[in-house]
Amino acid sequence: MKKIPLYAMAHGRSGDKGDGSNVGVMAYDQRGYEIMKEWLTTDRVKQHFGSIVRGGVDRYEMPNILGLNFILHDSLGGGGSESLKNDAQGKTHAMALLRIEIEVPDDYDPPKVGTDGALAPSGELTPAGS
């Protein structure tokens, strides 16, 4: 097994849902989706977010688009206009989840995506050791 940033094998988006947020992540291929479905449990997501998520985490599967939808309860410091937080709507929570280091089999390499297969201009997302 090896660890890669989730960002290297999936993309995602987040927004507010009452006093919580939702984070949708989509894998780039079927195998990646199966790996993600197995490894990215609600417990691991809850642990990853630490003090940001004060409530529980729910997960829904969307196999049609290779997606997992997470609901992070009580993650905005109060919903709507009540929140004092800079990110009062959880807009950055998807980027936060994509930063998790996910364990994948040694022979799994995510497909090259986009125009040149580059992960990000900064190189921040390049998996360790590659």
Partner: peptide, 14 residues
């Protein structure tokens, strides 16, 4: 990918 992300935006139980 751009449409897929938006499908999941502010989604509860799909």
């Amino acid at each position: 990918d751009t449409v897929g992300e938006q499908l999941m935006y502010e989604m509860g139980n799909p």
